[in-house]
């Protein structure tokens, strides 16, 4: 594999990461709700709150990391043109959209009880 191929692969991952993080966050909290609600009723709300908090912190960290790699690459290859630069721009915006998506996912937990 050539270096340019590896760089391109990095670009690809940067583009795919944000929405993938959103997807994993969504499926995690959904699966957690499904699993926790099978168990004893008493602990459900606390367990759910913790799961959502942990999943959200993990997702935000991963998004931040992606953003950091974008800035690093921009600093390293300030002159790069064409696909790489373009994909980095795309990745930036996808991070924003994914953040909004994650915010929307956790919003209902403020209002709704677990397992009702």
């Amino acid at each position: 594999m050539s270096d340019t191929f590896k760089l391109s692969l990095g670009n690809l991952l940067q583009v795919l990461a944000p929405p993938l993080i959103w997807f994993l966050h969504l499926t995690t909290v959904y699966a957690a709700e499904a699993l926790i609600c099978i168990g004893p009723a008493g602990a459900a709300a606390t367990m759910m709150a913790w799961t959502i908090a942990l999943a959200t912190v993990a997702a935000l960290t991963a998004l931040l990391l992606t953003a950091w790699t974008l800035h690093r690459d921009n600093a390293r290859h300030p002159q790069s043109l064409g696909s790489s630069r373009f994909l980095r721009g795309v990745s930036h915006l996808l991070i924003l959209l994914s953040l909004l998506g994650i915010a929307w996912t956790i919003l209902p937990t403020v209002f709704l009880p677990t397992c009702a």
């Binding site: 969504l26 609600c37 996912t105 009702a116």
Partner: peptide, 15 residues
């Protein structure tokens, strides 16, 4: 399906 689970997907539909 529980209301909270539904609302996750309501949020995704908005997204």
């Amino acid at each position: 399906i529980p209301a909270l689970s539904l609302s996750f997907f309501s949020a995704a539909s908005m997204a």
